[in-house]
Simulated scan of single mutants.
Amino acid sequence: MLNLTYEYKLIPTDAQRETFDHWLDICRKVYNYALRERKDWVNSRKCDINSCSIRQEYIIPADVPRPTFARQCKTLAEAKKSIPELKRPHTHVLQQVLRQLEAAFVAMWERGHGFPRFKKKMRSFVFPQLNLESVKRFDGADWVNLPKIGLVKMHLSRPIPEGFEVKQIRVVKRASGYYAMLTLQCNVDVPQPMLSGHGVGIDLGLNHFLATSDGELIDSPRFFVDGQRKLKLLQRQLKRKQKGSRKSRQLRHQIAKHHEYISNSRKDFHFKTAHHLCDQGQSIFAEDLNLKAMSSGILCKHTLDAGFGQFLNILSHICFKRGTYFTRVDPNGTSQTCPRCQAHTGKKELSERVHKCSECGYETHRDVAAAQVVLQRGYTAVGHIAVNFGEGK
């Protein structure tokens, strides 16, 4: 089963825009109420059996079961009888909000994520079940048919591939407008790409965005750092405005649009770089970095600006789409190993940008040497004969 997600710009009317905003507000209330219900149940089970907290205590009967997704869906159905506002959004939309909360708790239990937080804003809602004719074209325009909303005009920037069916639609609100993320499904099995052709190892860094084992260095554009000056000016103007005024709302919208512009520029750079790497080789190896640790150090702003996690996910997707083999290898000690003789060269300072082996005399750029070690480890991990690098200049 092959799944794809295509994103299209929506062109709603004023009435449809108000409906989207109202549904998002209702989804936020349902999410926060369900989270409060779960949080109260957890807090009521925290105190000792023979004492209570001096400050406050949650008194919930001991026979009350733990709130789960199924129980909260039943509670939501009963609440619709007394709260007419809950009848406005589609039933599946509100159920997906509760499923999103359940997924947040599962991520906390199984993957070590933090406790779910209350939401000030809801930015999207999902229609999980759609018919085969959700996307239509008539009167020279493209439309998407959303349950209980109707036909919404859409800019079909690229056609939907043949053989794919629309299974799910997520409506996302951003500073530049509303977008529809269509989940497409096709009943085919696509084999994973196999190791073949010319291999390329990449080393990610801050001085250069990445270095390849072929000796190519790609500079980091630093999108957020370059756009920080405009953000400071807008935020300084916002500080002088009265909170809640018309001018204050306009400046907040400008700040949000500038953040979106920075994000889109970074993502566009990641996609173009991924395609460029796929043009260079048929097998790509990258470091399996600990991104959480990298983004909490002294260079956290520049690390987050580079967006290594997003780039590796995009690179994996592009490699799969173009039939290029991709895998990640152990990143430990890549800059302390000679790619020619495998000797341990010791720890290098960040200011030392040249790799020079005292054993064999191999000399090259530090990041290029690390990328060559990544390439060798990738070949070794799949049982392939590792490449040997000759004399460098």
Rank of each mutant, 00 (worst) to 15 (best):
Y179A: 03
M181G: 01
L182F: 15
T183E: 04
T183S: 11
L184G: 07
L184Y: 09
Q185F: 15
Q185L: 11
N187L: 14
V188S: 03
D189R: 11
D189Y: 10
P191R: 09
Q192K: 14
Q192W: 05
P193Q: 06
P193H: 01
M194P: 01
L195S: 08
L195A: 14
L195R: 07
S196V: 07
G197T: 02
G197C: 09
G197I: 08
H198P: 03
G199K: 01
V200E: 09
V200F: 03
V200Q: 09
V200C: 10
G201M: 02
G201F: 10
I202C: 12
D203W: 09
L204P: 08
L204N: 10
L204A: 13
G205V: 04
G205Q: 04
L206D: 05
L206H: 04
H208A: 05
F209W: 04
F209L: 15
F209I: 07
F209R: 04
S213G: 05
D214V: 00
D214T: 12
D214P: 00
L217Q: 02
I218C: 06
D219P: 00
F224T: 05
V225S: 11
D226I: 08
D226P: 00
G227D: 11
G227N: 13
G227M: 02
Q228S: 15
Q228T: 06
R229W: 03
K230I: 10
K230N: 05
K230L: 11
L231T: 03
L231Y: 07
L231F: 04
K232E: 11
L233Y: 04
Q235F: 05
R236Q: 14
Q237S: 08
L238Q: 14
L238I: 09
R240W: 00
K241R: 15
K241W: 00
K241G: 03
Q242S: 12
Q242R: 13
K243R: 14
S245V: 04
S245K: 07
S245A: 08
R246P: 00
R246C: 12
R246A: 15
R246L: 09
K247M: 01
R249Q: 07
Q250I: 08
Q250W: 05
Q250H: 10
Q250R: 14
Q250G: 06
Q250S: 06
Q250D: 02
L251E: 01
L251P: 01
R252H: 12
H253L: 15
I255K: 08
I255A: 03
H259N: 09
E260N: 03
Y261G: 05
Y261D: 10
S263K: 13
S263A: 15
S263D: 13
N264H: 14
N264F: 00
